[in-house]
Design a protein around this nucleic acid. Structure first.
Length: 851
DNA sequence: GAGCACTGC
């Protein structure tokens, strides 16, 4: 810091000291009253008028339903509905609903459970003249399914969507006062529970797809089990796609179970050994120049550190005796087969075999990721048979590839042209391609896991579960009998886990823990211990520790005022804090954009053939900011400007941006702005620019990022002509190659903040912004004087700052004033920062610019 | 030098 800066900051700070009230009791927070969160009073139908209105509605609904039933259009649909397997179980189902508070349904694909069961309840209630007072909710894990199921059900009833049947998902709903059956995402229901913990008025709740074991669904089940005794009139129906519904039944005190068989066309399975026989493909043994280390080798287990149990199981088999009925060539291939590396030649040979020897129909190949899809695509292009573009339409399908929104994935190709889709897990449940007849399954998927010991999120390829394999296989039998080629031995299939580990055991829990607090469900640890499969207490402890570090929970694990604000923001608590600080420091626009991008999805897409251009486009948005977050802000700004001139389509195309994601981000920004308004941080009467005074100030935006993302800090240490990166928890880490900071050798500033760090082939920081030590000193963690008195420490002594005594003293003073101001603002969001905090804010700005 | 997938009053 120059003496000039020191003088300026000192004088600005001096002026602010007088402006702040003498008693800035920033450390004591007002106590939360136990009633404070039930601000929304639920209006209960007590008066006679309301009762009679309901009776009238019940009559109307019944008349309308009877009329519709008699009409011709619905008659046709009715005969279709009566052919569904669910129809046979209708009477049993309705009887069980009437007699039990909780019911578990296991229904296989194609049985019609999702569209029929909620509808049966609705029809039954309307027929019994309870239509006016019933309220049926059916949750779905995904937005698309909530919409499409609601649309299907209302059309089966011959009604417009939003009548008696509606849907509600984030930022979008079609429902009315008449809606009696609502399909919503599980997340929407969880938010609803914050306002109305008793689900007042809801008569029937159906929770669909619980076998997927998503975090929201598992969380909801804990809440519901506690709620049922308080709501004896509420009926709960759990719907699972797999026969094994025991787990859920037991969890709810041995609730009765009804099984509904499914209907799909038969699918024939072939395993690796059969595929080798049929295709005559020869797997090449690992050549010695691969150093024999990382890749493979049967019975070379002792040379390798760790192998998964399924691979070990296979390697313990004596190939010649176990596969004695197979050809010598197949046995040799099985001997050479590696479970750790997918043999793309084998995939290619399988596709070729289908194209030569089998009938018409699309082929769907399940792979693990971008890299495999890309390499296989190249291989197919060079293939003599498959490379013929007049006969084959080969399409990659991956969440961050632009093809994801193209119609041709779903459309039937012209006659004599075969569609071949190379997909990730996205085609397992999110995207359905109807005309698939052949599935090729590599047996693996990239899966997130959470290493609580090292506080590290991982994303590694692993064997899928039997349930997943079944689901993938089923993709072949939607329109006619199909075939599934599994590129792994039957022995491995038989040893696969029945189900994937539930998400609650695979994910960092800070957001969930905050949610538990906001629902006033008691101590986080003991509440989550009631889960179907409770998370490791160390994971819970890590999450609580983080929430304490960022100031969302106090020492007694109670919500602080900051924590209460964060509960209202539907995003990771670090990102929520960034948004709040951004609004306080008048960087609202960028904060909204960054929050929307990080909370939803990166809008940058990666086309398979132009990834270097895509990389360059992202870097040009970042300019010399050394920030992925700034790149995001600039890209969004560019999109908004292009929209004004109606050139957004070409802008997105030219800059490798996803228009769908950007539109979603626009809507999310509005939602966030509204939420900030609700909690007082944004005043609607002020103009938009009132909160954007520093939005173009890179140093301020970086400081806001630091305030939000702390303690996710990376140290940049110069090593000769390069920079090496370190974190407290992991030691050396790498910048993710997709980051604008990848490959940059020297950085102007000594630290980075990031929002996501993940272990794949190494430990990568996915997004980063280069920040100064002043940003950290002012907006990072608590400042602790060094033991030897010559500096300041942070992050448990991991970060050390040294400077002259007078500078350190000045920073310490400024920090005290800044914390006071922030605490006052957070306790009372209506506090006028521009008046009350003028001196402190000016001093902060001055210091941040003193580089 | 590398990228599973969802989702939120």
């Amino acid at each position: 810091m120059s003496t000039e800066t020191e003088r300026k900051v000192g004088s600005l700070l001096g002026s602010s000291l007088g402006a702040s009230p003498a008693n800035g009791s920033s450390s004591t927070y007002p106590q939360e009253s136990s009633q404070s969160s039930s601000a929304v009073k639920v209006i209960k139908p007590v008066s006679k008028e309301i009762d009679s209105a309901k009776e009238k509605l019940s009559l109307e609904l019944k008349q309308k339903q009877d009329e519709l039933r008699a009409s011709n259009g619905v008659k046709e649909i009715r005969s279709f509905r009566e052919k569904l397997p669910a129809f046979k179980a209708k009477a049993e189902f309705l009887k069980a609903v009437a007699e039990n508070q909780v019911l578990v349904i296991s229904g296989e694909t194609g049985c019609g459970k999702t569209t029929q069961l909620p509808q049966y309840i609705l029809e039954e209630e309307i027929s019994a003249l309870r239509g006016g007072s019933c309220s049926i909710i059916c949750t779905q894990p995904r937005r698309i399914s909530a919409i499409s199921v609601a649309a299907r059900v209302s059309s089966e009833r011959g009604e417009p969507l939003g009548g008696s049947v509606g849907y509600q998902i984030r930022l979008e709903s079609k429902r009315s006062a008449l809606t009696r059956l609502l399909f919503c995402t599980t997340g929407v229901l969880l938010r609803q529970l914050v306002q109305d913990p008793n689900l007042t008025g809801v008569t029937h709740l159906l929770v669909d797809e619980i076998h997927e074991r998503g975090m929201n669904e598992d969380f909801l089940l804990i809440i519901l089990r506690d709620l049922l005794p308080r709501r004896p009139d509420l009926r709960l129906i759990l719907m699972s796609a797999t026969i094994n519904a025991d787990l859920f039944s037991k969890y709810f005190g041995n609730a009765p179970t009804i099984h509904i068989p499914g209907f799909t066309f038969p699918v024939v399975d072939f395993f690796l050994e059969d595929v080798l026989e049929k295709s005559r493909y020869k797997i090449q043994p690992e050549s010695d120049n691969m150093q024999g280390s990382s890749r493979r080798g049967r019975r070379r287990r002792d040379q390798e550190s760790k192998k998964d149990p399924l691979t070990e199981l296979f390697e313990d088999i004596d190939i010649d005796s176990h596969y004695r009925n197979y050809s010598a060539s197949t046995r040799m291939s099985l001997e050479a087969w590696s479970s750790s590396q997918l043999d793309l030649g084998l995939v290619e040979a399988s596709i070729e075999y289908i194209c030569r020897s089998e009938g018409d129909g699309a082929i769907l190949v399940f792979l693990t990721g971008w890299d495999e899809i890309s390499k296989l695509l190249d291989k197919i292009k060079g293939n003599r048979l498959l490379g013929d573009q007049s006969k084959f339409l080969v399409l990659p399908l991956h969440g961050s590839m632009p093809t994801i929104n193209q119609r041709e994935i779903f459309d039937r190709p012209p006659p004599n042209k075969r569609k071949i889709v190379l997909a990730t897990n996205i085609a397992e449940s999110s995207i359905t391609i109807d005309d698939v007849v052949y599935v090729i399954d590599c047996g693996k998927a990239k899966e997130t896991s959470y290493d609580a010991l090292n506080k590290l999120a991982c994303l590694l390829p692993s064997w899928i579960s039997k349930a997943s394999a079944h689901q993938r296989r089923g993709r072949a039998g939607r329109v006619q009998p199909g075939v599934c080629y599994k590129l792994y031995p039957k022995v491995i299939h038989d040893a696969m886990l029945q189900y994937q580990l539930p998400e609650i055991l695979r994910t960092p829990l800070q957001e969930l823990c905050l949610h538990v607090k906001s629902l006033q469900l008691g101590a986080v640890g003991s509440f989550l211990a009631k889960a179907l499969q409770p998370p490791d207490s160390l994971s819970v402890q890590n999450a609580i520790e983080l929430l304490k570090t960022i100031g969302a929970l106090d020492d007694t694990e109670e919500l602080t005022p900051l924590g209460r604000h964060l509960c209202t923001l539907p995003m990771d608590p670090n990102i929520g804090k960034m948004l709040l600080i951004g609004s306080i420091f008048q960087c609202l626009g960028p904060a909204l954009t960054i929050a929307a991008g990080l909370a939803h999805r990166d809008p940058f897409v990666l086309p398979i053939d132009r990834k270097h251009e895509a990389d360059a486009a992202k870097r040009s948005f970042a300019g010399d900011s050394c920030s992925d977050h700034i790149a995001l802000v600039k890209a969004f700004q560019g999109y908004k400007e292009a929209k004004r001139t109606r050139s957004d389509r070409s802008f997105c195309w030219d800059n490798f941006l996803s228009p769908v994601t950007l539109r979603m981000m626009e809507e999310m920004r509005e939602q966030f702005r509204d939420l900030l308004t609700d909690i007082g941080f944004v005043d609607r009467s002020k103009t938009a620019d009132a909160y954007d005074q520093y939005s173009h100030d890179l140093e301020m935006v970086s400081a806001v990022l630091c305030a939000g993302l702390y303690p996710k800090v990376v140290q940049c240490k110069r090593r000769g002509k390069r920079t090496a990166f370190y974190t407290k928890e992991d030691g050396k880490v790498d910048i993710h190659p997709a980051s604008v900071n990848a490959g940059v050798h020297l950085f102007p500033l000594p630290y980075m903040v990031y929002s996501e760090k993940v272990k794949t082939t190494g430990i990568y920081v996915r997004d980063s912004t280069n920040i100064s030590d002043y940003a950290l000193l002012l907006f990072g963690g608590n400042l602790v004087p060094s033991q030897n008195g010559d500096g300041i420490e942070m992050l448990g002594g991991y970060l050390h700052f040294s400077a002259s005594r007078s500078v350190l003293e000045l920073i310490r003073k400024l920090r005290v004033e800044l914390d006071k101001l922030l605490n006052r603002k957070i306790e009372d969001p209506t506090l006028d920062m521009s008046a009350e905090g003028k001196g402190v804010v000016s001093a902060v700005v001055e210091l941040l610019h003193s580089y």
